[in-house]
Amino acid sequence: MEPKLLLNHRAISITLNRLCCELIENHRNFEDTVLVALQPRGTAFGNQLVQVLKENYHMDNLKYGQLDITFFRDDFRRREGLLKPSQTQMNFLVEGKKVVLIDDVLFTGRSIRSALDALQSFGRPSSVELCVLIDRRLSRHLPIQPNYVGHKVDSVASERVSVDWQEDNHSVLLMGSKEV
């Protein structure tokens, strides 16, 4: 099956701006809010959001961290191959803060569960929200739902959603399963 284009560069730009506006609506000047993007792939989306918030909406006092969840995953020793960690960069505590978790694609919800555990190593947040670029509906293994959604996709488990962040040419593709 040919890859199907879900979002092109222009559509992603519009979505990024809309998500930023929604975030500002709820978090105003981000005084008590921290943005935490998940490694490895959520950080590219997080970087884009932060860039738009700063450049288009003048939010200059953002607290932005990158969290690796590898050591909190539930499939270590239960799958082939090693889980290789990425870097965590959290220069602040989340104690008493409103946290917005950021990831590119929400699928089974297991990464988010791991992230909720990993987040606790940095304190007890007052609340946690979830912002995703793509929500693959109807494929959740856990009762986890996003608060901010860029785009909803209906897909089957064997398909793959690929987010490609290229300079001036962002795209989101739906790839068919390899077996088909």
Binding site: D68, F72, F76, R77, K84, P85, Q87, S121, F122
Partner: peptide
């Protein structure tokens, strides 16, 4: 490379991860 990640972990307020909980 992996020790770099754990060095960051052991400098967190809570220095524990659940990776080997069944070991």
């Amino acid at each position: 490379e992996t020790a770099d990640n754990f060095k960051e972990v052991i400098n967190r307020p809570i220095k524990k991860v659940p990776s080997l909980r069944d070991v």
